[in-house]
Design a protein around this nucleic acid. Structure first.
Length: 932
RNA sequence: GCGGGUGUGGUGAAAUUGGUAGACACGCUAGACUUAGGAUCUAGUGCUGCGAGGCUUGGGGGUUCGAGUCCCUCCACCCGCACCA
């Protein structure tokens, strides 16, 4: 009986289905283990072979943990809100819910095809009102909370209001800092609107203004993705930066905690480093400069010690003071420059090597020396970072130096001989010179003294600055969670607030997305919801018209907490019961790509901390251990058409002609050999193609690039599974290389793994004789092979080295085949061992071996020390570090004995050429080196 | 520009602590069995040399008895950069 994977996989799936083997309860006497995959956005293109890489790894690990006796939660769901579905709706008129549903069905089929052990009864879908009800609920928790810097945690606004009533806000400056201070009396005297305005400065979810890409022609706001080369991707219309009112999450308040608790996570250092850099904590000072016209300009600097080296100030072109300080004679130039910068993205501005800028005509007076300092604007200063203004010290900063050079601004040297006039001195272990009262001091001492002096004059304060910005949380789109917010007299309220006095049904969550006639943007850059007047404008119990929020939430809203919903997906009363979150607790293993390093992972961490602070969770970090998977790249194939003809020349001969390089669909290529008939049928213009072959074959060129439809290099897992089976596919993806590494897909290579599975099968079945498993006792050699393998598989699985696991299985099967072993004593353990990797085949063999129940719940085999310890070692003998021969010695042999034996050896003698060895190095169990 | 990562045969890779570089596969070459082979099996396969040997882990330098692994330096490629998710 041969390895009929189609039949086997179908039978195994049926058995699992019937026995509901993947269902997991929220109570168990077993220890728990939570394995999580980054859930997919169900795009219309379906899964390609790159997507399941991480899923296979987590599936293997989840199965392994089950067999090790854990109660394992391994769920899957869909991040179903998003731009592509809406874009598709805009083009075709199909409701995003409909296309999303269709895509999800397809994804589930594809996933099931690969044989994942998901408990589908826990599936979540972020666009399901029963799911986003809780996304909205969490948003309201954020809206109704503030971050108490004294306690370093989120608290209900009630505690803040109590403080205001008692003592005003003197002890609790607003994070946004534009409220000023007020007393308890002042607070009590305030009207509702003023109070709410002040509270907005504290809320964790708050309204402010942000700059977005605005496209006049399309009448809409565009995502960065949709702006290509300074024009809209659709239509190529001009775009500009526009300030709009937006929701934000005050993640900056959590900056320190987000940095500090990284220490307790088992993430790669690289990943932690990316998060730290993204948060970008820097300690420095905010200093105040005053223009000759009396305007105060605040600058942030990490080097207050260089204050006497300030030669000019630079403001971000969009800085609010720019128009006020610009002198009439520089007005035209400044306006022109500001217009230019408005058309530029932040990325372009940061990456720009060309120096540009513009003098405003204004001067400041140096706060300590009183020197007159010109004020410039330039795109290299960003409005969103620090105060949007810097003090430029060309002697000590590369970019400032380049700027000064470019505009011929004289440079003040404050580093003595270290500064040569050629380049800035960025070294921090230096002595400051020519700087009044800090001359001769170290950087650290000088900075402290400057701060002291400026603080005394109220011209500066110590300040910790973060690169991290508060997260923009609204989108002018349809296909996202509606905000449970409505405006009365332009003041925002949560829909359940008494002040709004909405009729009871309107106060409840979820606030569902209304049906729309079309997906076109609303007026004034508002989202499509703004067009649904009878949804937007509602009448409250007092007969007043209130206006609903027309923005929707961004993609990361639903994905910031989905791992919690899996714990208790059907709960109608809470986002998840405390019992369930206490039981499953943190995600023990999270597998996903590095592209989420700073977005999703940071937001999820913040949300978890907020829910923890507010008492809804008993842990404050969501993902204990994180493993990053690499990408599977596409392998593109090319054909070469001789210029202006229908003749295609094989790759090896292409240099003899002038050719066009054309991508062809990989499905028409076997390895690198083109199926010329299929190619002729691919497109009408190739119907009459002629070929110049080499050795009777048309050989394609190839290149590794991103797997994408447009490059014709997409490989669908369904096709691979149909041809080789899910078990082969799973093991091959693992065999490709280390999980965290990117690597190109090569369908050709899968044969080796498929052959291995067939060979594995032949340990049990003979093509002629059928079942050949015997009851004979296993030999010492066979037991050695088995236990060595168990040990290796276990340790490699634990360290996610799945590629070497597959190799070890191959080695094991090769050795057992050589030993002609068909013994139950060996094979029964081997079947359990391979279950996480090739579950379908394992189940079939497990049943045939006559075992009770499913192999899914069998125990992972254990290895015994006595079979894996060696008592001798074949040592490589090196002369001067170069291996020359080998000799076997017992591991407990005396060094003196070994030395004598080695030196007496013929081959060693030959290399010694009669000389006395200078040194004899013996590393037990490793090697022997003779130095001459 | 900033941040992170990766460079080993024709290809995917292995080498877990500084100790035999290239395990395991793909591909290729030759052969066996077979009506057939896109099944299976056997042998070979880093480069170079008739050979003894020499060379070889992106380039250059260093530490060491010994370096793919540690240090310095240079280069190339990939990913992210805040409205794709």
């Amino acid at each position: 009986m041969e390895y009929n994977f189609q039949q086997i996989e179908q039978d195994s799936k049926k058995r699992w289905e019937a026995q509901q083997v993947y269902k997991v309860n929220n109570t168990s006497s077993r220890p728990k283990y939570y394995v999580l995959d980054m859930f997919p956005y169900p795009s219309g293109a379906g899964l390609h072979v790159g997507h399941p890489l991480g899923y296979i790894a987590s599936d293997i690990f989840a199965r392994y943990k089950v067999m090790k006796g854990f109660s394992v939660l391994h769920p899957m769901g869909f991040d179903a809100f998003g731009l592509p579905a809406e874009q598709y709706a805009l083009e075709t008129g199909q409701h995003p819910a409909v296309t999303t549903e269709k895509n999800i069905t397809r994804y589930k089929e594809q996933l099931d095809n690969i044989g994942f052990n998901y408990d589908w009864s826990r599936e979540v879908n972020t666009s399901d009102p029963q799911y986003y009800k809780w996304t909205q609920w969490i948003f309201l928790q954020l809206f109704k909370s503030w971050f108490n810097r004294d306690t370093q945690k989120a608290e209900s606004l009630d505690t803040l209001i109590a403080i205001f009533e008692k003592e005003g806000n003197a002890g609790h400056a607003a994070p946004g800092n534009d409220t000023g201070t007020f007393t308890a009396e002042a607070w009590q005297a305030m009207g509702e609107s003023d109070r709410r305005h002040i509270l907005m400065q504290y809320r964790l979810a708050y309204l402010d203004h942000a700059v977005v890409w605005w496209c006049e022609a399309l009448g809409t706001v565009l995502a960065n993705d949709e702006v290509v080369n300074g024009v809209s991707e659709r239509g190529g219309h001009p775009v500009e930066r526009k300030k709009m009112r937006q929701w934000f999450l005050r993640i900056t308040e959590y900056a320190d905690r987000l940095i500090d608790s990284l220490d307790k996570l088992e993430w790669s250092e690289a990943m932690k480093e990316m998060q730290r850099n993204w948060i970008g904590r820097s300690e420095g000072a905010e200093l105040s400069f005053t223009t000759t016209g009396g305007q105060k300009i605040a600058v942030f600097t990490t080097r207050p010690d260089t204050i006497f080296g300030v030669d000019f100030l630079v403001l971000a072109p969009e800085h609010e003071l720019v128009s006020a300080i610009t002198t009439p004679e520089h007005q035209a130039e400044v306006t022109q420059y500001v217009t230019y910068v408005k058309s530029r993205s932040e990325r372009e501005r940061m990456a720009e090597k060309k120096i540009s800028g513009c003098f405003t005509g204004a001067y400041c007076l140096h706060p300590l020396s009183g020197r007159k300092i010109p004020v410039w604007i330039s795109e290299y200063v960003l409005a969103g970072y620090g105060t949007g203004a810097i003090m430029a010290v060309p002697a000590g900063d590369d970019r400032d130096h380049a700027f000064a050079r470019h505009f011929d601004i004289p440079v003040t040297n404050i580093f003595g001989d270290l500064y040569t006039g050629e380049a800035a001195v960025s070294d921090k272990n230096v002595t400051i010179t020519d700087s009044d009262f800090i001359s001769g001091l170290s950087v650290k001492d000088a900075a402290a003294k400057v701060l002291e002096t400026l603080e005394a004059k109220s011209l500066g304060t110590r300040r910790i600055n973060y690169r991290l910005r508060d997260a923009g949380f609204s989108r002018q789109r349809y296909w996202g969670e509606p905000f449970p917010i409505a405006y009365k007299d332009n003041v925002p309220y949560a829909i359940d607030e008494e002040a709004l006095n909405l009729p009871e049904p309107m106060r409840r969550l979820p606030l569902e997305l209304p049906h729309v006639e079309h997906y076109k943007p609303g007026p004034e850059g508002e989202g499509p919801l703004a067009n649904v007047t009878d949804w937007v404008l509602v009448t409250n119990n007092d007969g007043e018209i209130v206006k609903r929020e027309t923005n929707t939430m961004p993609g990361y809203a639903g994905s910031s907490w989905y791992f919690l919903r899996y714990m208790d997906p059907g709960n109608q009363q809470e986002f998840a019961s405390k019992d369930s979150t206490d039981y499953w607790n943190q995600v023990d293993l999270y597998i996903g790509g590095t592209e989420h390093a700073v977005g999703h992972l940071l937001y999820s961490r913040m949300w978890t901390k907020v829910l923890y602070d507010l008492g809804h969770l008993s842990f404050d970090e969501p993902f204990k251990r994180l493993v990053n998977q690499g990408m599977i790249q596409g392998s593109t194939r090319y054909v070469y058409r001789i210029n202006g003809t229908h003749t295609f020349v094989s790759q090896g001969l292409k240099d003899q002609h002038l050719v066009d390089q054309i991508r062809v669909d990989v499905s028409m290529v076997d390895g690198v050999e083109l199926d010329t008939e299929a190619f002729k049928g691919w497109r009408p213009e190739y119907a009459n193609a002629e070929f110049i072959l080499e050795n009777g074959k048309y050989i394609c060129g190839s290149e590794t690039e991103k797997m994408s439809k447009s490059k014709y290099n997409v490989v669908n897992p369904d096709d691979i599974v149909a041809q080789y089976g899910a078990d082969t596919f799973r093991m091959y993806e693992m065999f490709l290389g280390p999980i965290e590494m990117s690597k190109p897909w090569d369908t050709k290579g899968i044969e080796g793994v498929h052959r291995f599975l067939k060979k594995f099968w032949r340990l049990f079945y003979d093509e002629q004789k059928g079942w050949i498993v015997t009851e004979e006792a296993a030999s010492e050699a066979e037991l050695k092979v088995l236990h060595k393998t168990i040990k290796k598989i276990e340790s490699d699985t634990e360290r996610f080295s799945f590629n070497t696991v597959v190799s070890q299985f191959m080695i094991c099967v090769n050795e057992l085949t050589d030993l002609n072993c068909h013994k139950r004593g060996i094979l029964d353990a081997l079947v359990r061992l391979i279950t996480p990797y090739a579950p379908h085949m394992a189940e079939a063999l497990w049943q045939q071996l006559g075992n009770e129940g499913s192999v899914i719940h069998a125990l992972f085999p254990e290895w015994e020390e006595k079979y894996v310890t060696e008592n001798s070692k074949v040592y490589p003998i090196a002369i001067n570090g170069k291996p020359r021969t080998e000799l076997e010695f017992a591991l407990d042999a005396e060094e003196a004995f070994i030395r004598a034996e080695v030196l007496a050896n013929e081959a060693v003698q030959k290399w010694l050429e009669g000389k006395e060895p200078k040194k004899f190095i013996y590393v037990k169990g490793r090697m022997i080196n003779v130095v001459v």
